[in-house]
Design a binder for these strands. Structure first.
Lengths: 192, 192
DNA sequence: GTCTATATACAGATAGAC
DNA sequence: GTCTATCTGTATATAGAC
């Protein structure tokens, strides 16, 4: 996403997918190198230490995620449509048997250095800010009495948790339930 | 919890805490043994392979969790009170900088064997069933139009996700937001 | 039951040839 | 940039003495 070609970006792409599926601890320089067809020392050439790789992954994921949100925030579409675009980002991960990269790393928080923790914090803050802004821009379409910041927190927690639980139980029921909850928090479209 | 004394239960207690904080992959027989003051081979005496330890941890956690729920389900208290007891179980983990054991292991799902995956599935199914039953028993106090199964899924996802995000951002804002959401889904207490 | 000792595998990381 | 080779640490797991 962030870069279009080269070994480096291929490494980042594969590493991202592996972390979203099984976590950072389960990602080794060796296994990553094997997937890309190089040796582990070549991976160290691009990412001297594992923390360098981790920080890069979070930065790229965060950029891609927020960029896709930014594309729709100024669109002339309904509130529910914008919120469902937000859910779609999680649905994509679920369809690929992945978690949100930052959700996965949040579970591994104690193994991360200070920089990675800050990057995670910024990701969640930015994602929730997007939600708050969208809710504010469509204030009259919000059916809930909860303040926007609380609604944003509820949606973010709910979606991260839904990815976690749907991997265990399959069938996508938790993500679907989150969609229904969000719909119920928004004034339904006026028809005809 | 499940057993009161002996090396075995001390190992289980320490192992549970470690997994809730940093996951199963980060738990080694050596580090666990060190904490309890024995050698790793002694841990193998009780739990021949790591999967045996993992399965035991899930079973014990699940039993303790569901037992505490069972204690309040027949109490003559309000719906919101029962639901807040449910949230309290997550709050305890958060206060100790832990995740729900099963939430943590859900993130590590791909590293678990079939038995552990089944046990996780049963835990989430049972916890949501408790919620469904409680909602059904207080049907007239439910303010949401969503069916009980969806509400249960929403609460479970939301709480698991809130633990994840509050560890990153501190301050317990996500768990607090979940409490407010749940309150808003229930008919408020009649006062006076 | 708990220990010492060890087998085997794999982790992150680095040095230096090409 | 990519490789071979290697260092060092740690993981799971087992054998066998006490």
């Amino acid at each position: 996403m962030s870069e279009r070609s080269g070994k480096r970006s291929e490494l980042e792409l594969r590493a991202r997918a592996k972390v979203q599926r099984s976590g950072l601890r389960d990602l080794s320089f060796r296994s990553l190198a094997d997937e890309v067809g190089v040796k582990s020392s070549s991976v160290h050439y691009y990412f001297p230490e594992k923390r360098d790789l981790a920080a890069t992954l979070i930065r790229n994921y965060s950029n891609d995620f927020l960029l896709r949100l930014a594309r729709v925030s100024s669109d002339n579409v309904s509130l529910i449509s914008k919120l469902m675009t937000f859910v779609d980002l999680f649905e994509e991960a679920a369809a690929d048997d992945k978690l949100c990269l930052c959700g996965m790393l949040a579970a591994e928080l104690l193994a991360l250095d200070k920089e990675c923790r800050s990057l995670l914090e910024e990701f969640f803050k930015a994602a929730e800010s997007w939600l708050v802004d969208v809710l504010h821009d469509h204030k009259s379409d919000v059916a809930s009495s909860l303040p926007s910041t609380k609604l944003a927190a509820v949606m973010m927690s709910g979606l991260e948790g839904a990815l976690l639980l749907d991997r265990v139980q399959g069938a996508g029921v938790h993500l679907q339930a989150q969609r229904q909850l969000i719909s119920s928090l928004v004034i339904s479209e006026r028809r005809l």
